[in-house]
């Protein structure tokens, strides 16, 4: 299938991309790795009049450490993230998540920023960045601003990014020593997207859960933290019994959508199972 016609412009800097966005108004879309946008354009479900390619923008690339955070350029591919020694050392949860996205070819092209800006409800990153308390650094005509991830995902395919802004970097606080982590996913058997994905971060003190952070993606219109599960775990023994008990709360009132391969009811059931399993996997890593 072939996309409808469009005008193509390359941005060489974020500033230029922002000014192009202003110039073209709502007719333009930003092109990052293209792995969300191009498939839609091929089916003509999306027909932007102008594509602004961020490919040449060097400042959007690369991963670096800044204090206790890792700062990741929005154009960093899933594969670069999954194989970056810095990411694997400082935010291994994000590396584990990136390694489970799509397939090799998708990971070679798809980007962190593209995925987070597109906000597909079945994307993997949202669960991971939610538990990591990432900060989204955007730039628009009025300058730079930072959006905490808790305010980023507004609804299905909708984020806090403004139409004339570019998501430039994602600032991720490094995981702390001794913290366990996991990203556990049930992939859609055809598309590879998440029917359900659970991210966990677990801190344990002398056999007791000090802090647990759990987020889920894929089940409903947008990814969510699971505060009831997190609260139920705090101060509890770090063992299977309390994980199982707390994980049951993952299903509570969870806004799930029906899918051909998994009904809302089944997804709610799996939310508890995957939460328990994710916590157990995280606990193994605490012990390692």
């Amino acid at each position: 299938m072939i996309p409808a016609t469009f005008e193509y412009v390359r941005a060489k800097s974020v500033r230029e991309a922002v000014s192009l966005l202003q110039q073209h108004g709502g007719r333009a879309k930003l092109l990052a790795g293209g792995h969300s946008l191009l498939p839609l354009m091929k089916l003509r479900l999306s027909q932007p009049e102008v594509l602004i390619d961020l490919g040449p923008v060097e400042e959007l690339r690369g991963v670096r450490e800044e204090g206790s955070s890792v700062v990741i350029g929005a154009m960093t591919t899933h594969d670069e993230l999954a194989s970056s020694p810095l990411v694997r050392e400082r935010v291994p949860l994000l590396a584990e998540c990136a390694a489970q996205i799509g397939d090799v070819q998708v990971r070679n092209r798809g980007t962190l920023g593209g995925s987070l800006a597109h906000a597909d409800p079945a994307a993997d990153y949202p669960a991971a960045v939610l538990v990591l308390d990432a900060q989204m650094e955007c730039e628009g005509p009025a300058g730079a601003r930072t959006v905490p991830v808790s305010q980023w995902f507004v609804d299905m395919l909708t984020t806090a990014l403004r139409p004339d802004e570019v998501l430039c970097r994602v600032r991720v606080p490094a995981q702390t020593r001794g913290q366990g982590w996991s990203y556990t996913k049930l992939p859609h058997p055809a598309s590879g997207y998440s029917l359900l994905g659970v991210a966990c971060l677990l801190s344990v003190d002398g056999g007791t859960v000090r802090e647990a952070r759990v987020a889920i993606t894929g089940v409903g219109p947008k990814a969510l933290r699971l505060p009831k599960v997190e609260q139920a775990l705090a101060g509890k023994p770090a063992d299977e019994a309390s994980f199982a008990e707390a994980a049951k709360l993952a299903s509570d009132g969870l806004d799930a959508t029906d899918d051909l391969y998994a009904s809302a009811e089944y997804k709610r059931h799996l939310a508890a199972v995957y939460t328990k399993r994710g916590l157990l996997r995280a606990l193994e890593r605490v012990r390692q």
Binding site: G34, H35, L38, K42, L51, D53, V104, V106, N108, R109
Partner: peptide, 15 residues
């Protein structure tokens, strides 16, 4: 593409 496997149906030639 530059040594890495990509799906050429999901890359524009201009990219």
């Amino acid at each position: 593409l530059n040594g890495k496997a990509v799906k050429s149906c999901t890359v524009l030639a201009v990219q």
